[in-house]
């Protein structure tokens, strides 16, 4: 175990969390909605992979992306009435949707965890000099970097990407210019879903045991990252997600076992500290615009 080894693993986990965080940030940007149920997109993808365990890889991947995108677009429709409501109701409602979807998963698949076998051969290690890393680590780094870049390009270069950025910065003015809220919101959910589906495939390689709360457990730290980084800007939210994944992996390696149980306490104390000292997030530039009653 070298320092470099730890760092490579931490970067890989950080990138996967960054993808999840970016999905949350994309939707928040255009809708001012923190979607607690984002985790259930991961859960849906994981169960899709589970159900296609014995089928060819292409079928499994198609099922995973299909399930995640379909659920995300359904969420977009369900959340439409929320556009005119208070932040409190929004927050509680997405929590309710998350609860509902977990209950559905429980009813359909039971509480017992089951193992996804798709791409499990990626768990084999490869030697690079002194370093022994698992293939999935390298693939996660590659795919993570690729998806972050691709999303950045879509936002920078395409018309709908430009409209999304404008709507996130100043929704009223964007609307006055004719930007259709429903178009940018639907596109944000779509992008978030594609990224979430890719993250799911890689996450299930690393953590194959799928339960109804699979995604929820992943989305909570990602959400912490988003808030710590700065919810108001996509870049800072994504960086925050990366930081939390990175920190979790490093601390998990470095901390002694009896200190590790208090990892959550340390992380969430950090959240409170950031909220108090830098309400716009560590990487945010200004005071948060959502800093309202």
């Amino acid at each position: 175990m070298t320092v470099l080894q730890t760092l490579v693993d931490a970067v890989a986990l950080g990138l996967l969390y960054a993808l999840v965080a970016m999905g949350i940030g994309l939707v928040f940007g255009v809708m001012r909605l923190v979607n607690f149920a984002h985790g259930e997109l991961l859960t849906a993808g994981a169960y899709a992979l589970l159900l296609t365990n014995d089928m060819p890889l292409a079928v499994g991947l198609a099922a995973c992306f299909g399930a995640v995108v379909a659920l995300a677009l359904a969420m977009e429709v369900v959340y439409r009435p929320l556009r005119t409501t208070t932040p409190t109701t929004m927050l509680v409602t997405t929590f309710a949707v998350s609860f509902l979807l977990q209950a559905v998963a429980l009813l359909a698949f039971g509480a017992r965890g089951r193992n996804v076998g798709v791409l499990s051969e990626l768990n084999r290690a490869v030697s690079i000099g002194d370093l022994r890393v698992r293939w999935v680590t390298l693939v996660s780094i590659g795919v993570g970097a690729l998806l972050l870049t691709a999303t950045a390009l879509v936002l920078a270069r395409t018309d709908v990407g430009l409209q999304m950025r404008a709507a996130a910065m100043d929704a009223t003015t964007a609307q006055l210019l004719g930007v259709r809220a429903s178009t940018v919101i639907r596109f944000a959910f779509l992008l978030a879903a594609v990224v979430a589906a890719a993250a799911t495939v890689l996450l299930t390689v690393q953590r194959p045991l799928v339960t109804p709360s699979y995604g929820f457990q992943l989305v909570i730290p990602a959400l912490v990252g988003v808030v710590v980084g700065g919810l108001d800007r996509l870049v800072s939210a994504t960086l925050g997600g990366f930081a939390i994944g990175f920190a979790t992996a490093v601390l998990g390696d470095v901390l002694p076992a009896d200190g590790r149980v208090f990892l959550d306490t340390a992380l969430f104390l950090l959240v409170i500290l950031v909220l108090l000292v830098r309400p716009g997030g560590l990487f945010g530039r200004t005071r948060a615009a959502w800093e309202r009653v």
Partner: peptide
């Protein structure tokens, strides 16, 4: 001292910390 969404998330953090401890 916090309001809105940041207060919501901070109280969520309190819940997690309390449970963890």
């Amino acid at each position: 001292r916090l309001s809105g969404l940041s207060a919501g998330i901070a109280t969520f953090a309190v819940l997690v910390i309390t449970n963890n401890v």
